[in-house]
Design a protein around this nucleic acid. Structure first.
Lengths: 232, 232
DNA sequence: CGCACTGTTATACAATTGAATAATTTTAAT
DNA sequence: ATTAAAATTATTCAATTGTATAACAGTGCG
């Protein structure tokens, strides 16, 4: 009857390991099925560590949520930052990043929704969500602004913000429904769909955001390959 | 120690009562806090009835979810159907209905998100969600079609469907973020924002959807004096 | 090498959970 | 008014939950 041999991890490593195990368990079994025992088993440790590192299970879950939100926005804005070239390309890259892997992932969306359900009841969750959302809006605004200016669109802070709100809604909605409703339509259509939709939302000429350089191959558009009617 | 006096309810009434109590409890305490005991206490009965009417707690929750989804789409499409006049007005009415009370409600959105998190793990939830989503898309398509035709827009089944997908994404995203993020911006702006956004998404002339007849200048009514009556 | 520190394991415990069963009351038909 | 069937209550039970506590073991410092 020897004890389990173990390895001491640094504070950050152990905390991250527990948070990731939490996300895995919530994704697999839902919030109600993510018990401390399952989480710690997933992380390969025993239950005591939750109390040791996070004080309580709730605090662990809150931290895991913040960890997830951080990763999501970081990945998308990183994708924009990594795109060289004109501001249109960066905005397009950001939009597409939200509707392609790894962000566009059923498990991730499912996780996100599960946590959103707790925002209303837990002030800690509310704060995490609000901060994440605010940052997302800010990134979006900073990407929209130069595009509007470059095209001589009517511009003001209020206009820019409203565009960001609408665009964010579009991203979120397509992201959620698209990831969960795999089956009603192919997810592949979403990146092209959102770039074209964004052009119209921002009153940009058609084609501004789609394929300035790279051919995005709008796969199979059977009958009407493109709608380029521009009513005056 | 006499027993609790009780009243026999019809099968439908009792079932609905239990489903509504379930939604109330999930909204108040989250899924994990909606225990059979709390639910039945909310409904004013004892725990045995869950087994009697639904067989298991999971089945009760599934039914409550279907009940919620049904109410949501019914209310929105009812709002469109009740609007007399041109097809533009009906579409506008549908859009606005999704972003005003009673559909635009933090508790409702929170409920919806909580359930969405289970869609991935529970085939029963998945079916309910898919059916509800499909119907929502269909309603949207049937509202978009006549508007496109009336304005001589390029039209095909594929185009119409893509517009419905985008518009549905916009609705869902604004609905969710708007309801939960009260504080970052006023929810009042959303109805106008979505009508104007929808005009651009569908390539309609500006003003087509906004205020054809009715001035919906929703003067900032701080509190909603009238409680939305639940369909009995 | 020895020793203290603390990360980690192991175990215990009270509370809560969903479900099952038995007992009782209401309702409606006769 | 009797009676049978169904609805509802009351109670029990095993399993699981989150947390608390004590014992152990890996690590680095002297």
């Amino acid at each position: 009857m020897s004890r389990k041999t173990f390895q001491r991890l640094s504070l950050d490593d152990r905390r991250r390991s527990l948070m990731e195990a939490t996300l895995t368990c919530v994704a697999r079994h839902g919030l109600h099925g993510a018990s401390v025992r399952r989480i710690t088993e997933e992380a390969g440790v025993t239950v005591g560590l939750v109390r040791h590192y996070f004080g309580s299970k709730d605090e662990l879950i809150r931290n895991a949520y913040a960890y997830l939100v951080g990763q999501l926005t970081a990945q998308a804005s990183e994708s924009a930052r990594a795109t060289e070239g004109k501001s249109e390309a960066q905005l397009a890259s950001f939009l597409r990043a939200n509707l392609t892997k790894p962000n566009m992932d059923e498990e991730t969306v499912s996780l996100w929704a599960t946590f959103i359900g707790r925002v209303r009841h837990d002030p800690g969750f509310a704060e995490i969500h609000r901060d994440g959302y605010r940052e997302f809006l800010n990134v979006l605004e900073s990407l929209i602004e130069p595009v509007l200016i470059a095209h001589g669109c009517p511009y003001s802070i209020a206009i820019c913000r409203n565009h960001a709100i609408a665009l964010n809604g579009l991203i979120d909605g397509l992201w959620m429904e698209g990831a969960i409703n795999s089956g009603l339509y192919a997810q592949d259509i979403l990146p092209d769909l959102i770039t074209s939709a964004a052009e119209r939302l921002l009153d940009l000429p058609a084609g501004t955001l789609s394929a300035p350089d790279i051919p995005h191959h709008t796969s199979n558009a059977p009958t009407h390959p493109k709608q380029q009617s521009k009513p005056s």
